[in-house]
Every structure is written in structure tokens, then in C-alpha cells.
Simulated assay, not measured.
Amino acid sequence: MAADNPSFDTSSTLLPPRLVRMDQSTDDDLECSLHYLPKPLMREFGHVFNEEYLQSTAADLSTTSSGENLRLLAIPTNQRAREDLVAVGDHIEQEKDRLLNVFISFGKYICEQIRLKGYWADYIDPCSGLPMISLNCNKVYSEVDGMECLLNYKSYNAGFCKILTHPKWGSAVYPATIFAHAPVDVVKGLIESLPRGATA
């Protein structure tokens, strides 16, 4: 069935992209959505994390004692950059640092909230492509490939780099991903509880 909005894959999408922020005191918005891991991304996830998500005590069974189904979930985030990130210069590096700090705060908060409920969660360092919490993992996750798979966003090659293009923001976009092994309702409720970002 064709989706009204072709920018995301309805087969895996639990929450379509929405702008959220950590709290009302900031205007640092992140585009955020929630997805089941589709098969191509499941292979990538296994390559990066192996079975780290099964090491947590609540996550070693497919269901919890209360009967909740645990699923592998992806929370892709994209931030609109103030500069085209394909460009070079000190101001571009400063903007990347700003975007990194926004995501690290967001990723840490989301993972802490999920882990406090007894489930597994981790987020990817956008600089290295490595997990931030599962420290014994050394395989790199491709944010661009993940955004293509989950959201149907496009990319292009620039030299040795693969550049993501956002349907509204072009290459002025900063992608980063959070993963969880948890009941859908827990993660969905957490995202829906976040303040909405600006609509413009």
C-alpha cells in the first residue's frame, strides 16, 4: 500500500517523524521517529552490537514477567543544521560540535529512561559510529545507510563520503540513532511525552 508520505517506510514505522525537544527551555529540535528493525537493518544491528542487548537482566527473554513483548527498535534522529555540513571551515566544525552535544544529551536521556525501566538501550556516537554504552563493541554503524533504510531518505557520494540528504533540509542535516530492546508502548510513550518542536 502506498503511503501518503513516501519519506518513511510504513512497514517498519511505529511513529512517523516529528520534531521534539528535550524540554521547553531549549529550541534545539530533533526530528525523531520510531521503527521496528527491518531485515536489512537487523543484519547491520547484529554486526554492530552482536548480542549485547541480551545481556541485560530484563532483556534475556522475548517477553517480560508481565507478558510484554520485547522488540528491537530504532529511534533515528535528524537535526537541521544551521550550515550545509558538506562545506568545510571552522564554523562548520563548530556547528557539528553543537549538533553533537544536542544529540548526546538527547541520546543519554532516552537511554537512561528506557534502562531505568529495566530494558536495554544504546545510542551511536555520530563521530565514530560506535555504540556509546556497549563499550566492547567495535563495529561501526552507518547512519546514512540506516536513514536510507528506515526513512527512505536519499544520499549521494562525495569523494569517499556518503552524504545524507533530508527531503526538506538537503545536506544541512545531522543524523544519529538510538536503539532499544523494549516493549513498543514503553518507547512510544517516552517519545510522545517529549515536548513538540517548532512546526516551521
Rank of each mutant, 00 (worst) to 15 (best):
L70M: 15
L30G: 04
H166D: 10
V186A: 11
V88D: 12
A87L: 12
L54E: 08
K117H: 11
G118K: 05
I178T: 08
R18A: 10
S142P: 01
L72R: 12
Y153M: 08
L150M: 09
P76E: 04
L85A: 08
V102R: 05
E83A: 03
Q94W: 03
E93T: 11
Y174W: 13
I124N: 05
E44G: 09
P183Q: 06
C137N: 13
A200G: 02
L15H: 01
F160D: 15
P6N: 05
Q79M: 15
N50W: 06
N5E: 09
S11F: 08
G197I: 04
H91R: 11
D90R: 11
R18Q: 15
I178V: 14
R115E: 13
I114N: 04
A158M: 14
P76D: 05
F160N: 14
E83Y: 10
L54I: 07
L14P: 05
Q113S: 11
Q24K: 12
I114F: 06
C127E: 13
R82P: 00
N138D: 15
S62Y: 08
D90E: 14
I114E: 05
I124T: 04
Q79V: 02
A121C: 06
G170A: 02
A3F: 04
V20T: 12
A81D: 03
S65A: 14
S105P: 00
D185Y: 10
E44M: 13
G129Y: 08
L150Q: 05
A74D: 03
L100F: 15
T26F: 00
I163E: 01
A81V: 02
S33P: 02
D23P: 02
D4G: 04
H181G: 00
I191N: 07
L150F: 12
M22L: 15
L99P: 06
V187Q: 06
V184K: 13
G67N: 08
F106Y: 15
H35Q: 01
P6Y: 06
S33I: 01
S66T: 14
A121K: 01
R80P: 00
E192Y: 04
C32P: 00
T63C: 09
Q94G: 00
A200E: 12
P175A: 07
F103E: 07
A182T: 06
N157M: 12
A81R: 03
T64H: 03
T165S: 14
V184S: 04
L61M: 06
E68H: 14
D185E: 15
